[in-house]
């Protein structure tokens, strides 16, 4: 039984199976909200309310012809989607869903897992860059460089913003941070600026409008994904969906007090809180226009980074006054 439990974690919950189902659901939710905000319908006909549309897209892409450019680095080109999927799926194991107790640590919850999780979330960016760079297409190359340029903009503010609640809680373990805020919900208000900053940064990390610069279709066609097709593209899309789930799970853990309450209630809380964050991200996507890559970097360093540092200072001061 003890050996079975990790396997269950990896394959069923919160591992691959759950992630696939919930990731596609989140994509559906995002698309539907985005469409409704624009007074459109969104997916309607695949499954009830179009719920199966992302799944149908995935299946269709899996069945499509897979083309590898002649000049591309074939090994890298093929490996990247799989590695990317593995990375984000691994990251999900660290998000403290109901199975983690705040006291006992295990293979998926240990001191410092917030840092590991943040690093695992940085990896997809590098994978996108390599994907663009390895496909040798001009548009992909431009997209790849844009990915890296943006990374230098948003990564530091994101780290600072996510670390400030951890600092206040005095722990580097996600489960403990969540437990700390469950005990003192009012302290969550202190972190509201950091929450806003990290929402913007996560939006940039997920490459959604206004930060969808690396695959801005009107400028550089498909950007990093121009040359990807078939199964590889399907994997990349699934990877983006799962990254959306993981990042919103991380934000919900750190800023919204985690998911207490055992199996049932904790699960419901997980769904509600992540959907709330995805709703905010969708709203941001609908309300803005894409900006230029130079504007991203200057925006991040002129506004986001100072704000994140200010938040950190606030937390340190508060911690000094707190008993």
């Amino acid at each position: 039984m003890a050996a079975l439990k990790p396997l269950l974690y990896v394959f069923v919950y919160p591992g691959l199976l759950f992630l696939f189902a919930y990731g596609t659901f989140c994509e559906w939710f995002d698309r539907k909200v985005y469409a409704r905000l624009q007074n459109r319908m969104g997916p309607t006909h695949t499954g009830r309310w179009g719920l199966l549309q992302p799944v149908a897209d995935f299946v269709k892409l899996m069945a499509k012809e897979d083309v590898v450019p002649e000049k591309a680095d074939k090994g890298l080109f093929t490996a990247l989607p799989v590695v990317g999927l593995a990375v984000v799926a691994t990251a999900m194991l660290l998000v403290p869903v109901w199975h983690v107790s705040p006291t006992a640590s295990g293979f998926n919850s240990f001191s410092g897992d917030i840092i590991v999780l943040l690093y695992l979330l940085s990896l997809p960016t590098l994978i996108f860059f390599l994907a663009g760079w390895s496909s040798t297409n001009l548009f992909s190359t431009v997209g790849g460089t844009r990915v890296l340029t943006m990374l230098f903009g948003y990564e530091v503010p994101l780290f600072l913003a996510v670390l400030s609640p951890a600092l206040l809680a005095g722990s580097w373990r996600l489960a403990e941070i969540a437990a700390f805020y469950q005990a003192r919900p009012l302290l969550l208000l202190v972190n509201l600026p950091a929450f806003a900053i990290s929402l913007v940064c996560v939006q940039a990390k997920l490459e959604r409008t206004p930060f969808d610069i690396p695959h801005a279709e009107t400028e550089i066609v498909g950007g990093t994904f121009t040359e990807f097709s078939g199964k590889k593209l399907a994997f990349f899309r699934l990877m983006t969906d799962i990254e959306l789930v993981v990042s919103s799970g991380l934000l919900a853990t750190v800023f919204l007090g985690g998911f207490p309450g055992g199996v049932g209630w904790g699960f419901v809380q997980f769904i509600l809180k992540t959907l709330f964050i995805i709703f905010l991200l969708s709203l941001m996507r609908a309300a803005t226009s894409r900006i230029r890559v130079d504007q991203v970097v200057s925006f991040a360093w002129r506004f986001l980074a100072p704000a994140a540092v200010g938040q950190l200072l606030l937390v340190i001061l508060l911690k000094g006054f707190m008993p």
């Binding site: 624009q38 007074n39 459109r40 409008t209 969808d212 009107t218 609908a286 309300a287 226009s289 894409r290």
Partner: peptide
């Protein structure tokens, strides 16, 4: 213009 700038909501509303 909204679409080219990636402002799809604007695009949808104007076209509506």
């Amino acid at each position: 213009a909204g679409h080219e700038a990636g402002f799809d909501s604007f695009f949808m509303y104007v076209w509506r």
